[in-house]
Amino acid sequence: MGKVFRWVATTVVALALGAGSAAALINFGGAFDARIVNGAWETGRHTGSASADPYSRARGAIYGLWGLPPSEVVYYTALQDDTGQPLQRSCSYQVSGGALPARWWSVTLYRDYFLIENPARRYSWSSTTIDVAPAGNWRIDVNAAGEGDNALPMGERDGVFALSLRLYQPLPQVLDNRATIELPAIHRGACQGSSS
């Protein structure tokens, strides 16, 4: 009986360790050089490419299935603001930038990786929809109520918030400079229950 128990217990522990370590590494995002960080934004080095390591491919399939390779689209994601704080529904944010080096671009807001229902049916702003100042700069206001200029509402419940910046057919210099090109700033404004 003790022998059988040891084998069963070993099987259970081994399966749990295998599954747990796989989930952890997939969520981490793969090899140590698989992610490129640019301020609050990060992007996969080999998104949508068969040359990605198995963990990055698994992560890409789970969180961004059917993404295109960087030569066609560069996908940046931000789960945090410029100070490294997670995006929270209790805070307001200003995402601001200027012309971006791509044929077309968009900034989309997600909660728990899906679009956020809102009466204005506004889920993103793009190079064709955003109001641009005469100087060429623009600003997106992100807050729970969807108030302000070029607003993106965070909706009525909490979750994991993420901003996605898509650069379609990026200019040639983008691919080698994904860590350094100038990307929109994500500035945190007032937070409920805080003076920051």
Binding site: A14, A19, A22, P54, R57, A61, L65
Partner: peptide, 26 residues
């Protein structure tokens, strides 16, 4: 033998999940 069995099974389940994930996600 028990330890080797455990390590082997953990590795097999680890890689099975990693390589199956894209198929399953699809």
């Amino acid at each position: 033998a028990l330890v080797l069995y455990g390590i082997g099974l953990a590795l097999i389940s680890h890689f099975a999940i990693v390589f199956a994930a894209p198929y399953l996600a699809t």
